[in-house]
């Protein structure tokens, strides 16, 4: 990298700082709303609360029907954790096959993979619901987790395929000459080298599963099984009194794990590559 001139660097820094303010504004606004008394949230629009209270946090944490947010966080972590493991294993296996192997009907299968990404979820929802109901999986975490072990989020397959294609084929061939089979090439060469894609998959799976609302609310009815996202929606009621303050307070709390996860893994994104060092 050539050395940047000081003016260029300073200008860039200031611009980034202004941009950062725009990016973070909603977070500050949420934080401020969560600290205002429930009745003030919509009366006082400014960022600085004139009266600070932690009531929303206590009231929100209580949750509903005898289950606190401790339960909801635990449930979210179970679903998210297992989803990440499932996606990483199943999607990387399929991606390796599509990127590096030659097999019959490859084009057709690739097209089918895309088809499964393109069809709107609403219409496969009912058949899937009927299937999971027959298996007696409704009101368990299984409908949310098991599909991830069968690579149903084809988005990640495609992501990994694109990354594997960026890895020089010479590396595979060298390994093959050394006597490595496909399983070894996959586990010793491709998997470590596509670490950026692995990390990206982990980050996205975390965030999307954490925030995914639709399938969670269809399959989890009992508050014992509610995730954080479901509990947040539960605070609002269009026909009566909504608990906005509690909703904002718990939204802030629910961002903390995602944020920590993102920061930790994006570090990995940078450092991971430096050590493997593609030539």
């Amino acid at each position: 990298m050539q050395k940047a001139t000081p003016y260029w660097a300073a200008g860039k820094f200031v611009l980034l700082l202004i941009g950062a303010l725009i990016m973070i504004y909603p977070l500050l606004w949420m934080l401020s709303s969560s600290l205002k008394p429930d009745t003030m949230i919509f009366k006082e629009l400014g960022l600085w609360p004139s009266q600070i209270t932690l009531d929303n946090y206590f009231k929100g944490w209580e949750g509903t029907s005898g289950f606190t947010f401790a339960t909801f966080f635990k449930n979210s972590f179970i679903v998210v954790g297992l989803s990440i493991i499932g996606n990483l294993i199943s999607c990387s296996l399929a991606a390796y096959a599509f990127a590096r192997l030659d097999f019959s009907f490859k084009k057709l299968l690739f097209a089918l993979m895309f088809g499964s990404i393109m069809l709107p979820h609403d219409v496969v929802l009912i058949p899937q619901y009927i299937l999971f109901n027959k298996l007696e999986w409704v009101n368990t975490f299984l409908p949310l987790i098991v599909p991830k072990f069968f690579a149903t989020q084809a988005f990640f397959i495609f992501l990994m395929v694109q990354f594997i294609r960026g890895i020089p084929k010479g590396l595979d061939e060298a390994a093959r000459v050394d006597g490595c089979g496909h399983i070894q090439i996959f586990s010793r060469i491709i998997f470590p080298l596509m670490l950026p894609a692995i990390v990206t998959t982990a980050i996205f799976t975390f965030i999307w599963t954490w925030n995914d609302f639709f399938s969670q609310f269809i399959y989890l009815s009992n508050p014992k099984l509610w995730t954080v996202t479901l509990a947040l929606r539960g605070f609002l009621d269009a026909t009566g009194d909504s608990m906005w303050g509690a909703m904002f307070a718990m939204s802030i709390l629910s961002l903390i794990p995602i944020f920590i996860f993102f920061i930790a893994f994006q570090k990995l994104l940078i450092e991971g590559i430096a050590t493997t060092g593609i030539k």
Binding site: E62, G63, T64, S65, S221, P223, G234, F235, L236, D237, T239, G240, D241, S242, M243, A246
Partner: peptide, 9 residues
């Protein structure tokens, strides 16, 4: 099953 919010629950 019913609709509501934590207060009504």
């Amino acid at each position: 099953a019913w609709w509501g919010n934590p207060e009504r629950d």
